[in-house]
């Protein structure tokens, strides 16, 4: 196929400008969901159309792209999106977190701390954290506008009432820069502390819901909680079965039909790097 038949990075320049304006507004109002005219992309909704549009709008010929799906560089979604941008933007790609200038992610934040100049692009299925209890979009927008966030705690209250603790383990709501309550996309709450004061720019794209929001570098991101039930991240008793790392997020891998299983790093790049060091 002839690459020249695509505009650079698939989207036309007018669309990119429109998306960039939305991104700039999102950066200016941390945590606020900016509506944008989401385009049809050559992949189904739920496969990261929001993240892909954000990436397409910000990527340049000199960028180095990394794409992860649940922490892994080698799963279908990650491979497809990486191949997509190789084809339509002809950019360099990597699996190494430290080498990437743009990291598009589905539901994880890499274990290696991000640095200044890096951009993390999240794929977001449902951007509205209040939707669980208030289905009306007109009402949730008003609640954001008036900072009426009692409902968020109702959700956490229900968790404790039912499970004895806050059982929400992913898409755990955060308050950004002391103002907007934001859904961090379905990342495990293990990753929430990494968002706080991160030197990297974090952009969130929801294609089906046509919303973009952002956490600029060095922004306050606080996970909601109760005084007597403070926010806690998941902990794992065993180290990674492959690389021996501790203090990282682990995936459970089923080994056989007899109950055999092991826990390994969800971040494949981190796991490989650790094993190389040993």
């Amino acid at each position: 196929m002839n690459i020249a038949s695509y505009n650079f990075a698939y989207l036309d320049e007018q669309t990119k400008r429109m998306i960039r304006r939305a991104i700039l507004k999102a950066i200016a109002i941390p945590g606020y969901q900016v509506p944008f005219a989401s385009r049809e992309m050559p992949m189904p909704y739920g496969w990261g159309t929001g993240g892909v549009q954000v990436t397409a709008a910000i990527i340049g010929p000199n960028d180095v792209l990394k794409v992860i799906d649940q922490g892994a560089d080698d799963t279908t979604n990650a491979v497809s999106i990486r191949a997509f941008f190789q084809k339509v933007a002809n950019v360099a790609v990597t699996t190494k977190t430290g080498d990437a200038s743009i990291i598009q992610t589905r539901h994880r934040i890499p274990e290696k701390p991000l640095g200044q100049g890096q951009v993390l692009v999240y794929q977001v299925p449902i951007p509205e954290p209040l939707r669980f209890l208030e289905p009306r979009e007109t009402e949730t927008r008003k609640m954001h506008a008036l900072e009426e966030y009692g409902l968020m705690h109702v959700k956490l209250y229900e968790d404790i009432a039912r499970h004895g603790r806050i059982a929400t383990s992913y898409a755990y709501p955060v308050k950004v820069e002391g103002r907007y309550v934001m859904d961090p996309s379905p990342t495990p709450k293990f990753d929430n502390p990494k968002m706080h004061m991160s030197p990297a720019l974090q952009l969130f794209g929801a294609g089906r819901e046509k919303r973009i929001y952002a956490v600029p570098p060095f922004t306050d991101v606080v996970s909601l909680d109760f005084e007597d039930h403070p926010f806690e991240i998941q902990t794992f008793t065993e180290p990674c079965a492959l690389c021996g790392s501790t203090g990282v997020y682990l995936d459970e891998v089923i080994l056989d039909d007899r109950g055999g299983r092991m826990f390994v790093c969800s971040d494949t790049d981190h796991c490989e790097e650790c094993r190389d060091e040993h």
Partner: peptide, 9 residues
């Protein structure tokens, strides 16, 4: 909770 109470108990 809407008026800012944050102690579950």
């Amino acid at each position: 909770m809407a008026v800012g109470e944050r102690h579950y108990g």
